Simulated scan of single mutants.
Amino acid sequence: MSELRQLALATLAIASPDAKCAALRAIAPDCALDTSALLQPATLLPGREARPQLVMPRDVPQRALSTLAGRAALIHALAHIELNAVNLALDIVWRFAGMPPAFYRDWLGVAREEADHFELLRAHLASLGHAYGDFPAHNGLWEMAAKTSDSLLARLALVPRMLEARGLDVSPAIRAKLIGAGDVRGAEILDVILRDEIGHVAIGNRWFKHLCEAAGRDPLEAFASLARNYSANLPRGPFNLEARRAAGFSEAELIALQQAHRS
């Protein structure tokens, strides 16, 4: 098996984070690509180990960053988000047929960078005396992926353009807290992640607007409609407008975002 989308599906099914990241890096960016195939998973997706324990977001314990355990819990939460992001990128590659080849290669590149982020955070977590799986985590990102499994337009609108774009907003405050707690290495990793995530959200924006244009839909109208139809909770401010502009959000979209926040 050497076709890109089949390899993405097989990699998504792998439970071990180490094995998943290794299999992902073994996929050649220029390998054969069948954009039309309708693929079917052989196992429940995504593959994951028994740890970390998954809980509701409200049940994730809040810990003070002034303690070592608190900083470790935060780094663990970020690592979990990045591993989820690996799965999300792999999922969009195999699940949705009929897009231009550049679409699939874009998201394979995203998956690789998300794996880099996960490994940076996991190594830092180890330096704090903990391993991935030591703390409970929630599965909100993947739950939205499951909700939007029937629509690529909805997936692009509500995962990279909404949930992952939220990471652009919160990154500066988290970075400041890490610096305040003396965790310079954690702040350095966040700088890398923010830089790359601007590019990832930009990819989501580009392909969302590509589909809107093909369907003759206004991106603002389409996003608002999809958010309503999928019962998505719109993000609350403050917003990192500079990062969102760099990621391809238009001024009209940013104004609408801020108006929705104030209403």
Rank of each mutant, 00 (worst) to 15 (best):
L12G: 08
A15K: 12
A15Q: 09
C21L: 12
A22E: 08
L24A: 09
I27M: 00
I27F: 00
A28R: 13
D30N: 12
C31S: 12
L33A: 07
D34I: 05
S36W: 09
A37E: 09
A37L: 09
Q40K: 11
A42D: 07
L44K: 10
L45N: 01
G47V: 02
R48V: 00
R48K: 14
E49W: 12
A50E: 13
R51K: 13
P52S: 07
Q53M: 13
Q53A: 14
M56H: 15
P57A: 09
D59Y: 11
D59H: 15
V60I: 13
P61K: 12
A64E: 09
A64R: 11
L65E: 06
L65T: 05
G70L: 06
R71F: 00
R71M: 02
A72T: 00
A72P: 04
A73S: 14
I75Y: 04
H80N: 14
I81A: 14
N84I: 08
A85R: 01
V86A: 15
N87W: 02
L88F: 05
L88H: 10
A89D: 06
A89K: 04
L90Q: 03
D91R: 14
W94N: 04
R95V: 00
R95K: 06
R95E: 02
F96Y: 06
A97K: 12
A97T: 05
G98I: 01
M99Q: 15
P100A: 11
P101I: 05
F103E: 06
Y104V: 01
R105V: 03
D106N: 12
W107S: 02
L108S: 09
L108W: 02
A111F: 04
R112Y: 05
E113M: 13
A115I: 00
H117I: 07
H117S: 10
H124V: 01
L128I: 04
G129M: 14
H130F: 15
A131V: 01
Y132K: 09
G133P: 01
D134N: 08
P136S: 08
P136N: 05
A137V: 06
N139Q: 11
L141T: 03
M144S: 07
A145K: 07
A146T: 09
S149H: 13
L153F: 01
A154Q: 02
R155C: 00
L156H: 02
A157S: 05
